[in-house]
Amino acid sequence: GTEDLKEEAKKALKKGDKERAKRALKKAGLSEDQIKKFIKEVL
């Protein structure tokens, strides 16, 4: 589900894998702006 994808994105970001995080967030249905915001909040 969406929460799982967001968790996956957080883990990817902590490993420095932004591309993987972006893919997971796109799958979760987030827009580009939401993805940028999510990444900023996590990092």
Score class of each variant (00 low, 15 high):
Lys27Arg: 09
Ala24His: 08
Gly16Met: 04
Gln34His: 05
Val42Pro: 02
Leu30Val: 02
Lys27Thr: 07
Ser31Trp: 02
Gly29Asp: 02
Arg20Ser: 14
Glu41Gly: 07
Gly29Arg: 02
Lys40Leu: 14
Lys27Phe: 06
Leu13Ile: 11
Leu43Val: 06
Lys15Met: 15
Ala28Phe: 05
Lys22Thr: 13
Lys36Thr: 12
Lys15Gln: 14
Lys14Arg: 12
Glu7Gln: 09
Ala12Thr: 02
Asp33Met: 09
Ala9Gln: 01
Lys27Val: 07
Leu5Lys: 03
Lys22Pro: 00
Glu7Trp: 08
Gly16Thr: 02
Leu25Ile: 01
Gln34Thr: 04
Asp33Thr: 09
Lys26Arg: 14
Gly29Met: 03
Lys36Tyr: 12
Leu25Arg: 00
Lys40Gly: 09
Lys10Ser: 06
Lys14Pro: 01
Arg20Asp: 08
Gly29Ile: 00
Ala12Val: 03
Lys22Ile: 15
Leu5Thr: 03
Arg20Lys: 12
Arg23Tyr: 07
Arg20Pro: 03
Asp33Ser: 11
Ile39Gln: 02
Glu3Gln: 10
Ala21Pro: 00
Ala12Cys: 05
Glu8Gln: 10
Phe38Trp: 08
Ala28Ile: 06
Lys37Ala: 14
Leu5Phe: 10
Lys27Gly: 05
Lys14Phe: 12
Gln34Tyr: 05
Val42Glu: 08
Glu19Ser: 07
Leu43Trp: 07
Lys37Ile: 13
Leu30His: 02
Lys36His: 13
Asp33Leu: 09
Gly16Asn: 06
Ile39Ser: 01
Arg23Cys: 06
Lys6Asp: 03
Lys26Gly: 05
Ala9Thr: 02
Ser31Pro: 04
Glu7Thr: 08
Lys18Val: 15
Ala21Ile: 03
Leu43Gln: 07
Lys15Trp: 09
Lys11Pro: 01
Lys15Arg: 13
Ile39Lys: 01
Lys18Ser: 11
Lys36Trp: 11
Ala12Phe: 13
Lys18Asp: 09
Glu41Thr: 09
Thr2His: 12
Leu5Ala: 09
Ile35Ala: 04
Ile35Pro: 00
Glu3Ala: 11
Lys15Asp: 14
Val42Lys: 04
Lys10Pro: 01
Gly16His: 05
Ala12Glu: 05
Glu41Ile: 07
Val42His: 14
Ser31Asn: 11
Lys40Ala: 15
Lys37Phe: 09
Lys27Asp: 10
Ala12Leu: 13
Gly1Thr: 14
Gly29Gln: 03
Gly16Tyr: 04
Glu32Gly: 06
Ser31Gly: 05
Glu7Asp: 09
Lys27His: 07
Glu32Phe: 06
Ile39Leu: 09
Ala24Asp: 05
Lys37Tyr: 08
Arg23Val: 13
Arg23Leu: 11
Glu8Arg: 05
Lys26Cys: 05
Gly29Trp: 01
Glu7Pro: 01
Ile39His: 01
Lys18Thr: 15
Glu41Cys: 05
Leu5Asn: 04
Glu19Val: 08
Lys15Glu: 15
Ala9His: 01
Asp4Leu: 12
Leu43Asn: 06
Leu13Lys: 01
Leu13Glu: 00
Glu3Asn: 10
Glu8Phe: 11
Ile35Lys: 01
Ala28Asn: 02
Ala9Asp: 00
Asp4Asn: 10
Asp33His: 08
Lys10His: 07
Glu8Asp: 06
Ile35Cys: 03
Val42Ala: 10
Arg23His: 11
Gly1Asp: 13
Gln34Arg: 03
Glu3Arg: 08
Arg23Thr: 12
Ala9Glu: 01
Lys15Ser: 14
Leu43Pro: 04
Leu30Gly: 00
Leu13Gln: 01
Thr2Ile: 14
Lys27Glu: 13
Leu13Phe: 04
Lys36Arg: 12
Glu7His: 07
Leu5Trp: 14
Ala12Ile: 04
Gln34Ser: 06
Lys37Met: 13
Lys14Tyr: 13
Lys37Leu: 13
Lys11Thr: 11
Lys27Leu: 13
Ala21Thr: 02
Thr2Lys: 10
Lys18Asn: 11
Glu8Asn: 04
Gly1Glu: 13
Lys10Ala: 09
Leu25Pro: 00
Lys15Thr: 12
Glu7Ile: 07
Phe38Cys: 03
Ala12Gly: 02
Lys26Gln: 13
Leu13Cys: 06
Lys11Asn: 12
Glu3Leu: 10
Gln34Leu: 06
Ala28Asp: 03
Val42Phe: 15
Lys36Asn: 14
Asp17Lys: 04
Lys11Leu: 13
Lys26Ile: 12
Lys26Ser: 09
Lys18His: 15
Arg20His: 11
Lys15Pro: 01
Glu8Pro: 01
Asp4His: 11
Glu3Thr: 09
Asp4Cys: 10
Lys27Cys: 04
Lys11Ile: 13
Val42Met: 10
Lys6Arg: 10
Lys6Thr: 08
Leu5Gln: 04
Lys14His: 11
Thr2Ala: 12
Leu43Ile: 09
Gly1Lys: 11
Ile39Val: 05
Lys11Ala: 14
Lys10Thr: 09
Glu3Val: 09
Gly29Ala: 02
Glu8Ile: 12
Arg20Asn: 10
Gly1Met: 13
Gly1Arg: 11
Lys22Gln: 11
Lys18Gln: 13
Leu25Gln: 00
Leu5Pro: 06
Ala21Met: 04
Asp17His: 07
Lys37Cys: 06
Ala9Tyr: 03
Gln34Cys: 05
Leu13Pro: 01
Lys15Tyr: 11
Leu43Ser: 06
Arg20Gln: 12
Glu41Ala: 10
Glu3Met: 10
Leu43Ala: 08
Gly16Ile: 02
Arg20Thr: 14
Lys6Ala: 06
Leu25Gly: 00
Glu8Tyr: 12
Glu19Pro: 06
Ala12Gln: 06
Asp4Ile: 10
Ala24Gly: 02
Lys6Glu: 09
Ala28His: 04
Gly1Leu: 14
Thr2Tyr: 13
Leu25Cys: 01
Leu30Asp: 00
Lys18Trp: 14
Ile35Asn: 00
Asp17Ile: 02
Phe38Ser: 00
Lys14Cys: 07
Thr2Phe: 13
Ala9Leu: 04
Thr2Gln: 11
Lys10Phe: 09
Lys37Asn: 12
Lys40Glu: 15
Ile35His: 00
Lys27Gln: 12
Asp33Ile: 09
Glu32Ala: 09
Ala21Phe: 03
Leu30Ala: 02
Leu43His: 06
Thr2Asn: 11
Leu25Trp: 01
Glu32Asn: 09
Lys40Asp: 15
Arg20Val: 09
Gly1Trp: 14
Leu30Lys: 01
Glu32Trp: 09
Lys22Phe: 13
Ala24Lys: 05
Leu30Ile: 03
Lys37Ser: 12
Lys26Asn: 06
Ala24Phe: 15
Val42Ser: 07
Arg23Gly: 07
Asp4Lys: 12
Lys26Trp: 06
Ile39Tyr: 04
Arg23Ser: 12
Ala28Tyr: 05
Lys40Phe: 14
Gly16Pro: 02
Lys22Glu: 15
Ile35Leu: 03
Glu7Met: 09
Glu41Val: 06
Arg20Ala: 15
Ala28Leu: 12
Lys40Trp: 15
Glu3Pro: 08
Glu41Tyr: 07
Phe38Met: 03
Ile39Asp: 01
Leu43Gly: 06
Leu25Asp: 00
Lys22Cys: 07
Ala21Asp: 00
Gly16Glu: 02
Gly1Ala: 13
Phe38His: 02
Lys15Ile: 14
Arg20Leu: 12
Ser31Leu: 05
Leu5Ile: 05
Ala9Gly: 02
Ile35Met: 05
Ala28Gly: 04
Lys14Gly: 09
Lys15Leu: 15
Lys11Cys: 05
Glu19Tyr: 06
Glu8Val: 10
Glu32Ser: 08
Gly29Phe: 02
Ala9Val: 08
Asp33Lys: 10
Ala21Arg: 01
Leu25Glu: 00
Glu41Pro: 01
Lys14Trp: 12
Leu30Tyr: 10
Ile39Glu: 03
Lys37Val: 12
Asp33Gly: 09
Lys37Trp: 09
Lys11Glu: 14
Leu13Thr: 02
Lys11Val: 12
Leu30Gln: 02
Asp17Pro: 00
Asp33Gln: 10
Phe38Gln: 01
Glu32His: 09
Lys26Glu: 13
Lys18Gly: 08
Lys37Thr: 12
Leu5Gly: 04
Lys40Tyr: 15
Ala28Thr: 03
Arg23Ile: 14
Arg23Gln: 14
Ile35Glu: 01
Leu30Trp: 11
Ala21Trp: 03
Lys15Ala: 15
Phe38Tyr: 05
Lys37Gly: 08
Glu32Asp: 13
Thr2Gly: 10
Glu32Leu: 08
Ala9Arg: 01
Lys27Tyr: 05
Ala9Ile: 06
Glu19Arg: 08
Glu3Ser: 10
Glu19Asn: 07
Leu30Phe: 12
Lys26Leu: 12
Val42Leu: 10
Lys15Asn: 14
Ala28Arg: 01
Asp17Val: 02
Thr2Ser: 11
Lys11Phe: 07
Ala28Gln: 03
Gln34Lys: 04
Glu8Ala: 08
Val42Asn: 12
Lys14Val: 10
Glu3Asp: 12
Lys14Asp: 06
Gln34Trp: 04
Lys36Met: 13
Leu13Tyr: 04
Glu32Tyr: 08
Asp17Gly: 02
Leu13Asp: 01
Leu5His: 06
Ile39Trp: 04
Lys6Gln: 09
Asp17Ser: 03
Asp33Val: 09
Ile35Tyr: 02
Ile35Thr: 03
Ala24Met: 15
Leu13Arg: 01
Asp4Arg: 11
Lys11His: 11
Asp33Phe: 07
Ile39Thr: 03
Ile39Arg: 00
Lys18Pro: 11
Leu25Phe: 02
Val42Asp: 03
